[in-house]
Simulated assay, not measured.
Amino acid sequence: MCCSRYLKTIMFISTGTIFAVGAAILGVGIWVTVDADSLLDFLDAPPELVGYLLIGLGLVLTFIGFLGCCGAVRESRYMLLTFFIIILLIFIAEVAGGIWLLVSRAGVKKLLEDINEKVVVSLKEHYGGPDDEAFTTSWNTTMDTLECCGYNNYTDFYGSPHVNMTDLYPIECCKEGTYCDVVRAAVDANSGCLPKLETLIKDNALMGAVALGVCGFEIAALVMSMVLYTKVGQSD
């Protein structure tokens, strides 16, 4: 009895946290959908699309958190079983995705190349354009923060409205902090943002720890929900 009460308390707290996180993500998704001038513009991604994805994720997490939390408190076998099935499906999908990432490196490389091409094209078409101030400002902020230039390097700005109008490259592309032409940029340019991001990710072991933590939490949730499900069945 004491063990059952302890499990109920842990599951209530953990699933309640999931519910709160889901609600927060849902709120951010709604904000991004409403705010078309979001900083997401720097990736040239439609804010509405990203907003809908966040809303969907928020709704799923909120629903999962509600099932686990309410199922534990009310000792509902139906809710606990539904919670178990959903978490199990998510866990299987994550394992399958991890295996795919390890085995299909060519697919991952192709995906990165597609993203690369999309971002570079958006830079050439919109950076410095009279109707693309939000896009330009977002990229300037990103480059200034990471001390990088373009997605790959300064050549990403070839043909952009800014270069076409000024024959100069962005201040962030030049280590001296001033606008520079192609000759100086070729010698004195900061590296691209993609290599900086790759280095940042490689040097940051936190992502791996978070992934392991998520998997560990899911396994614990599966065990707790099934144990409670069994105990509730025995008490009926």
Rank of each mutant, 00 (worst) to 15 (best):
A72K: 06
C174Y: 12
K202N: 05
G208K: 04
A205H: 04
G150Q: 15
S225C: 01
D167K: 10
N116I: 05
S160C: 10
F66D: 00
V34H: 02
E113V: 09
S160W: 14
S160Q: 12
E147Q: 14
F63Y: 01
V227Q: 05
H162N: 13
V108Y: 11
D37M: 01
G51L: 04
A220S: 06
V223D: 04
G192K: 10
K110A: 13
G213V: 01
M226C: 04
D44C: 00
T62L: 03
C193W: 00
A106E: 15
L49Q: 03
M1H: 08
G97H: 05
H162T: 09
W31R: 00
Y169D: 09
E198L: 05
G129P: 02
G16N: 05
T142S: 10
I13V: 04
S160A: 09
N204S: 00
L101W: 09
L57E: 03
L112A: 08
H126M: 15
L67F: 14
L59S: 06
S191Y: 05
I55V: 08
A211N: 01
S76V: 08
L111T: 09
Y151E: 08
S14Q: 05
Y6P: 01
G68S: 04
A209E: 01
L80E: 09
G192L: 13
L102E: 12
P130G: 09
Y52H: 02
E75R: 08
L7Y: 01
L88I: 02
L40K: 06
L39C: 08
Y78T: 07
L7I: 13
L212W: 05
K175H: 14
G56A: 04
C70A: 09
S191R: 14
I25Y: 02
G68I: 03
T145L: 13
L53I: 05
I99G: 02
G27N: 12
F217I: 03
L54H: 02
Y78H: 07
C173K: 13
S235I: 14
G150D: 14
Y179I: 09
V28M: 07
E94Q: 12
V182K: 13
I85A: 06
M79Q: 07
N153I: 11
F83T: 01
E125R: 15
V120F: 07
K118W: 10
